[in-house]
């Protein structure tokens, strides 16, 4: 029994990690087409990636969207959390549910509803439309992690500040923010990573000339077959995520990384 459980566990790790490993190894191959094991080592596909206007453009656009959307989500999510973290009652549960809903809401429906909404109000620039969609999707991660940080703050601290006539802004800057920044950072980092790889709303909201890197990779796979430049594009995204995880581990600890994802 024990043996079977360990075998199944090993299988889980293999099927989760192997595809990612294969992509990274492939990205460094020297051959024209996919071959395994790869023939030779080269950086030619990374050069091809940065030489391609559409790939480079999609990459830098993805970074810009992720940066703006995660900042927006962090600011809005922190405001919402501070306002309602300690409130009780049906109405506040409902409001909080609304902020958290995009977590489990089918993102494809959100993408379509935003596309039709943008069309109904006379059109929104693709870039802005994507920033908005990714902020909506990132918001719940911020609300969740900031709320749990806030609930760990002793309310007496806040009251002490208020009784000393500190303005709400001062209370936030000098009392609350220093205590909850790891929660804000965890939520923000997660919103950034989510935006970087997001497909379901981007499918609807990208337009001709305005794509994100995951959508660019998807259309390459669908229409142009297996050029290895996609492996390089994927590997770059994987390296970025590894770097972000390592930095986050220093700043906020492993526990928060594992928790903010689930």
């Amino acid at each position: 029994m024990r043996g079977l459980l360990i075998a199944l566990t090993g299988f889980s790790y293999v099927v989760v990690l192997l595809p990612i490993l294969i992509v990274v190894v492939t990205a460094f191959s020297a051959s024209e087409f996919f071959a395994f094991p790869p023939k030779g080592f080269s950086l030619r596909w990374f050069e091809a990636f940065f030489a391609s206007d559409s790939m480079r453009g999609a990459f830098s656009r993805s970074l810009q969207i992720a940066t703006i959307a995660s900042i927006l989500a962090t600011v809005l999510g922190t405001m919402a959390s501070i306002a309602i973290a300690r409130r009780k009652g049906t109405l506040f549960n409902l409001v909080q549910g609304m902020f958290l809903a995009p977590l489990i809401f089918p993102a494809i429906v959100l993408g379509l509803s935003l596309l039709i909404f943008y069309k109904s109000i006379g059109g929104v620039p693709d870039f802005l439309g994507l920033v908005i969609a990714h902020s909506v999707l990132g918001l719940p991660f911020v609300v969740r992690s900031v709320t749990s940080s806030l609930l760990a703050v002793d309310p007496a601290l806040e009251e002490a500040g208020q009784s000393l006539k500190a303005s709400p802004v001062d209370v936030f800057i000098f009392i609350i923010a220093p205590l909850i920044w790891p929660g804000m950072l965890a939520g923000g980092i997660f919103a950034f990573i989510l935006s970087l790889g997001e497909l379901n709303t981007a499918l609807f909201l990208t337009g001709p000339g305005v794509t994100t890197l995951p959508i660019e990779i998807f259309s390459y796979l669908q229409f142009q077959g297996g050029q290895l430049v996609i492996a390089a594009a994927s590997a770059i995204q994987i390296f970025m995520i590894i770097a972000i995880v390592l930095i986050a581990e220093r700043l906020i600890g492993l526990k928060r990384i594992v928790r903010s994802e689930s």
Binding site: P19, I20, V23, G197, E198, L213, P214, I217, I242
Partner: peptide, 17 residues
Amino acid sequence: LLLVAPLMVSNVIRAYG
């Protein structure tokens, strides 16, 4: 973490794998 970190990689990349 070994299981959670791959969730951060875009699904299009994991399907490509």
